[in-house]
């Protein structure tokens, strides 16, 4: 894929070397435009070593000392190419970030593929956390790096730095990349476990209507009208008389979580409390609806509904 040429002014901007270019969504292929190379401290020491060897060659008039010095100098140069090769061609693409609650470490996943036929060794990835990976030829790997989250809402990853000192550690090649792949941060659930609010926003009556479900609840003496398959045949076989097993349905109460009913002094505290209720309600398997000023999500449960509600809180 070819990228649009960069205007000279942007090309020379210093920040490009450290924090990367403007965020993009798509996969980034590491090319000479993205990869920067500078000698490491060890590389500079290596230059001193080369100078020393050439000096020995000079003082002792020793051509082999010169030759070894020049060989090391050439190796120094060739290593620049190898350093570039260590990163060149790698394709990095942000993968779908998993939403988290504020305060948790935000996981950003990236898919790194090595399209070449050469393996890559020791590619370091740095966001806030660090990771070092190796990629075999034509291999793709998904890595997850973490960055702390503080505020609810969309949070962009910082600069992802892909770097390598392979092969000799004399140079560090690095590519600062910024991606437009925001992570959704839900509000932090409140700590205290308050009881669910009295239902108010919904049309349905609160409470539980008991009905036959599939949760085994107990055994009672057979009554007419009980289904034949509910008879406790094992008890009957033991001569304990005819009993029926009865089942209770999953509680089907509907809960309305209303912003107005959430305690708290300000917006964030209320959202935080709503978030706590949402988490608890989902875990309890309740059907719940969410009411925010200007938004109303009818009661439901399941992962999709849960996500929708949390997203509504995050982006409110």
């Amino acid at each position: 894929m070819s990228e649009a040429a960069l205007p000279l002014k942007q090309r020379l901007k210093l920040s490009r070397f450290f924090s990367g270019e403007a965020p993009t969504a798509g996969p980034i292929v590491l090319t000479q435009r993205r990869v920067f190379i500078l000698p490491t401290q060890r590389g500079l020491a290596f230059v001193l070593l080369i100078l020393l060897l050439v000096l020995i060659g000079f003082v002792y008039n020793n051509n082999l000392a010169y030759l070894l010095g020049f060989l090391l100098a050439s190796i120094f140069f060739v290593t620049i190419l190898h350093s570039f090769k260590a990163l060149a061609g790698l394709t990095i693409q942000p993968a779908r970030p998993q939403a988290v609650f504020a305060g948790q470490a935000g996981p950003y996943s990236f898919q790194i593929s090595n399209p070449g036929s050469q393996p890559r060794f020791a590619v370091d990835l740095t966001l806030q956390s660090e990771l070092s990976i190796s990629l075999a030829a034509e291999q793709t790997q998904i890595v997850t790096l973490y960055q702390p989250t503080h505020q609810r809402g969309w949070q962009l990853p910082g600069t992802l730095t892909v770097s390598s000192t392979y092969p000799l550690g004399l140079f560090r090649a690095w590519a600062p990349l910024r991606f437009d792949s925001p992570l959704l941060v839900y509000p932090k659930p409140a700590n205290q476990q308050l009881p669910f609010p009295e239902s108010g926003g919904g049309q349905d009556k609160p409470g539980q209507n008991r009905r036959s479900g599939d949760e085994f609840d107990g055994v009672r003496v057979y009554q007419r009208g009980d289904a034949i398959r509910q008879i406790h045949w094992k008890a009957f076989a033991k001569g304990q008389g005819v009993h029926s097993k009865y089942y209770s349905g999953a509680s089907s109460s509907e809960l309305w979580l209303d912003y107005q009913q959430a305690p708290g002094h300000h917006l964030e505290e209320r959202l935080s409390q709503l978030c706590r209720w949402l988490v608890d309600a989902e875990q309890a398997g309740l059907r719940y609806g969410l009411v925010l000023p200007g938004l109303r999500l009818p009661p439901d449960n399941g992962a999709a509904h849960y996500r929708n509600c949390l997203q509504a809180l995050a982006l409110f």
């Binding site: 009905r211 036959s212 479900g213 599939d214 034949i228 398959r229 045949w233 094992k234 076989a237 349905g249």
Partner: peptide
């Protein structure tokens, strides 16, 4: 339906009092 049980789908063991067998 909302009140269908697993046994309604796959079947169940019934005790036969005469043969004393499930």
């Amino acid at each position: 339906t909302s009140d269908i049980l697993p046994a309604d789908i796959v079947g169940s063991s019934v005790f036969d009092a005469h043969q004393q067998l499930f």
